[in-house]
C-alpha cells in the first residue's frame, strides 16, 4: 500500500523534474538543414578530391586535358561561321592574337559560359522565389548546373584558384536550391539567401564575368 502511494507520489512530484519549455522547432530545423547541406557539400568536395587523385598522374592529366580540349575545340569549331574560322586561322591581315587556343582557353570559354548561365539562374531564382512565382523546375535546373559545376571543378585545366573558390561556393548554393521545396519554405529560402549574401556569390559572379570581357569579345567573334 505504502509502495503504491510512494509510486503515485513520485510520478506526480517528478513532473516538475526538468520541465521542458516549448521546443524551438524552427531554429532547430534550420540548424539541421544547414548541417545536412554542409555535410552534402563536404561529401561532394571529398568525392572531388578523390577523383582529382586519379588525375595526379601526369600521363592521365595530359591525356584527359588534351582530350577535353579536343572535344571542346571540335564543339566550338562546329558552331563557328565559316568566315570567322578563316579570321581566327590568321589571314595576311590577322593581328597577333591573344592566346585563345589550347586547353586553358577552352576551359576559360566553357567556365565563362557556365558562370553566365549560373548568374542568370540565381538572379531569376531569387526574384521568383521572393515574389512567390512558381519555382518548381528550379531544383532540376540547379541539379543540371550542379553537374556542370562539378565537371568544371574536376577538370585538370582548372588551375585558377579564384575561379575554383567561386565554383565551390556556387556548388554549395546549387546543392541548397536542388533541395528547395518551394516558396512556402521560408527558412530554406533564408538559408539560400544567407549563403548568397555571406559568400557574395552574385557579386563575385558578376565581377568574374566582367573580368572575362576580353574573352567575351572573342565569343562575339565566334
Amino acid at each position: 500500500m505504502t509502495e503504491e502511494k510512494f509510486q503515485e507520489f513520485l510520478r506526480e512530484a517528478a513532473q516538475d523534474y526538468h520541465r521542458p519549455p516549448e521546443p524551438p522547432r524552427a531554429d532547430m530545423w534550420q540548424a539541421i538543414r544547414a548541417a545536412r547541406q554542409a555535410a552534402e557539400a563536404e561529401r561532394a568536395r571529398r568525392a572531388w578530391r578523390w577523383r582529382r587523385g586519379v588525375f595526379r598522374s601526369p600521363v592521365v592529366r595530359w591525356g584527359v586535358g588534351v582530350a577535353a580540349a579536343l572535344v571542346i575545340g571540335i564543339g566550338i569549331g562546329r558552331l563557328m561561321p565559316r568566315g570567322a574560322e578563316t579570321q581566327l586561322a590568321g589571314g595576311p591581315d590577322a593581328e597577333p592574337a591573344v592566346e585563345t587556343t589550347g586547353p586553358s582557353a577552352a576551359y576559360q570559354f566553357a567556365a565563362n559560359e557556365h558562370l553566365g548561365r549560373v548568374e542568370m539562374f540565381l538572379t531569376a531564382f531569387r526574384v521568383d522565389a521572393r515574389t512567390g512565382r512558381p519555382v518548381s523546375d528550379s531544383p532540376d535546373q540547379a541539379r543540371q548546373l550542379l553537374s556542370t559545376t562539378r565537371l568544371l571543378l574536376d577538370s585538370p585545366a582548372s588551375d585558377d584558384s579564384q575561379l575554383r573558390t567561386l565554383l565551390e561556393d556556387i556548388e554549395l548554393v546549387l546543392v541548397q536550391i536542388s533541395q528547395f521545396a518551394g516558396p512556402e519554405d521560408d527558412e530554406e529560402l533564408d538559408l539560400i539567401d544567407d549563403s548568397l549574401e555571406r559568400r557574395s556569390v552574385l557579386l563575385r559572379l558578376q565581377t568574374a564575368l566582367t573580368g572575362q570581357a576580353g574573352l567575351a569579345g572573342v565569343q562575339g567573334v565566334l
Binding site: 526538468h18 521542458p20 524551438p24 540548424a31 539541421i32 548541417a35 555535410a39
Partner: peptide, 19 residues
C-alpha cells in the same frame, strides 16, 4: 530536455538525433 535539464544541450541532442 528532461535528461539534460538544459536548453542548449536539449537542442543539440535533438538536432543530432534528426541529423
Amino acid at each position: 530536455y528532461r535528461m539534460a535539464g538544459d536548453e542548449e544541450l536539449a537542442r543539440d541532442f535533438t538536432q543530432d538525433a534528426f541529423i
